[in-house]
Amino acid sequence: MDETGKELVLALYDYQEKSPREVTMKKGDILTLLNSTNKDWWKVEVKITVNGKTYERQGAVPAAYVKKL
């Protein structure tokens, strides 16, 4: 869990989004888990830093590609 009490997951593999509802992640990324009720796809929040600014993006990733921490 992070400092706000939200559950975290670890990306076990790289994943490139294939639709606007998904998010890209790299192996080793730590993501915030938002919903894991679907056994195949979990909704997560990814933090992306671009030019020193951090953005948050929500989307789905394959459940088999992440592990709860």
Rank of each mutant, 00 (worst) to 15 (best):
M1Q: 13
K27F: 03
L10T: 06
N51G: 11
G28Y: 05
T32Y: 09
G52P: 01
Y13N: 08
K26N: 06
D2R: 14
Y13D: 07
Q58I: 13
E3T: 14
K68A: 08
I48R: 07
K39D: 10
T4M: 13
L33N: 00
K39Q: 10
R21K: 12
P62N: 04
K26D: 02
T4N: 12
L33A: 01
K6H: 13
Y55R: 08
N51S: 09
V9M: 03
D40Q: 11
K18P: 04
K68S: 06
T54I: 11
K68Q: 09
K27T: 05
N35F: 04
V23D: 02
K39V: 10
Y55Q: 09
G52S: 05
M25I: 15
V44D: 00
V61G: 01
K39S: 12
M25L: 08
E3G: 13
L69C: 14
K6Q: 11
V23C: 04
A60E: 15
D29W: 10
V61Y: 02
T37S: 14
T37H: 10
K27Y: 03
I30K: 04
Y65Q: 05
M1C: 15
T32G: 06
I30T: 05
E17C: 12
L12N: 01
T32M: 09
D14N: 07
R21T: 13
T24I: 04
P20N: 10
N38S: 09
Q58A: 11
W42G: 00
I48F: 11
Y15Q: 01
V50W: 08
V9R: 01
Y13H: 11
K43N: 10
V23W: 03
A64T: 09
D14W: 05
L69T: 05
L12I: 10
Q16N: 12
V44K: 00
D2Y: 11
D2G: 14
V23E: 00
D29S: 06
D40A: 09
S36H: 07
S36D: 15
Q58C: 10
E56H: 15
Y65H: 07
A63M: 04
V50E: 11
D40M: 11
A64R: 14
T54P: 08
Y15I: 01
A64H: 12
T32V: 15
A64C: 15
D40C: 14
K53T: 11
Y13I: 09
A64L: 08
T37E: 14
K39T: 10
T54W: 08
K43G: 07
G59I: 08
P62K: 05
I48D: 04
M25H: 02
W42D: 00
K53L: 13
V44P: 00
T24H: 03
Y65D: 05
N35C: 13
